[in-house]
């Protein structure tokens, strides 16, 4: 029983992890080696260097531009999400105003509402506002993060005793002072958590930037990756008819691009895992 359980776990480990191993080995091989060698064979470091160089310099510095765009959209969206969500969560949890419950209910509904259903009307709206093709057409939607509001609400309502705030008010603190000097310092974990979720959601979003951007100089990495598929020989026969003098991308180059595209999120995953998990659970199960 115990043994069988372990075997099942190992089987799933293979399922989850083998593609990752494959991905990191792929850029060390040439296109020919990729299909003819064992999937787990290591090519060579010099091939890796060539692959890296080829993809980073492909079409000028497209990949770096996409990386920069992804960073602008994601960090902008994340900053806005945090700035909006933390005070809103605080307000919902620890202040009273007319419509508070209604707002909370709407938040829950919108949180469950699949955002992609709104991409088309959002596109038309952004166009009417004159924001289409600007970074705001992405930063604003990324910054609207009801899930973060809900997390913050739960955090504030379960970790900060109301008596503490009441005492501060009696001592003459203003509402802003109470928030700024009592709530915010206590809210560090939830700020990190909301920031992380908002960042990952923005970084990985495909459909919205796919619609909202003018051309490849505005693409974030996720959309850029799809374009790279069209530039990769095996995935687009037209590339075979290209002249012999130009650089044609191959599958290992594409794998390298994927690694670069996921690196930021992966690094957060690797180094902040413990904090994240703890944070996730504090937000979640605080008694």
């Amino acid at each position: 029983m115990r043994f069988g359980g372990l075997a099942i776990l190992l089987l799933f480990t293979a399922f989850f992890f083998v593609p990752m191993i494959w991905l990191f080995l792929a850029p060390t091989k040439t296109d020919g080696q990729l299909v003819s060698d064992s999937p787990f064979a290591f090519g060579s470091l010099s091939t890796l260097a060539h692959t890296f160089h080829r993809i980073v310099t492909y079409d000028g510095d497209s990949l770096l531009i996409w990386l920069k765009n992804s960073a602008i959209y994601s960090f902008g969206g994340t900053a806005l999400a945090v700035i909006a969500a933390i005070p809103a969560g605080y307000g919902l949890a620890l202040t009273q105003f007319i419509g508070r419950r209604l707002l909370l209910s709407i938040t829950l509904i919108v949180m469950i509402m699949p955002a992609t259903a709104l991409v088309l009307p959002l596109f038309l709206e952004m166009n009417k506002l004159g924001l289409y093709g600007t970074i705001w057409s992405l930063i604003l939607p990324f910054g609207f993060f009801p899930f973060g509001v809900y997390l913050a609400y739960i955090y504030f309502s379960s970790t900060i005793p109301k008596d503490l705030l009441a005492a501060a008010r009696i001592d003459g603190a203003t509402e802003w002072g109470v928030f700024r000097y009592i709530a915010v310092p206590l809210a560090r974990p939830i700020i990190g958590l909301v920031g992380f979720f908002a960042f990952v959601a923005s970084w990985n979003n495909f459909f919205l930037p796919f619609v909202m951007t003018y051309d490849n100089s505005q693409y974030p990495l996720q959309v850029g990756l799809q374009q790279l598929i069209g530039s990769t020989a095996s995935f687009n026969p037209a590339n075979y008819s290209a002249g012999t003098s130009i650089v044609v991308l191959h599958r290992p180059d594409l794998a390298m691009a994927v690694i670069i595209a996921i690196a930021p999120v992966l690094i957060v995953f690797l180094f902040a895992q413990r904090t994240l998990v703890t944070g996730m659970l504090t937000g979640a199960t605080k008694e």
């Binding site: 374009q227 598929i229 037209a238 290209a242």
Partner: peptide, 26 residues
């Protein structure tokens, strides 16, 4: 498209100073 990259290179060589914005797409 990617397969026409060499066309673009040649055009740039023979038309220096042309006010063209080249955009690679799928």
């Amino acid at each position: 498209d990617a397969a026409r990259a060499a066309f673009v290179k040649e055009y740039k060589k023979t038309h220096p100073g042309a006010n063209v914005k080249w955009v690679l797409y799928s």
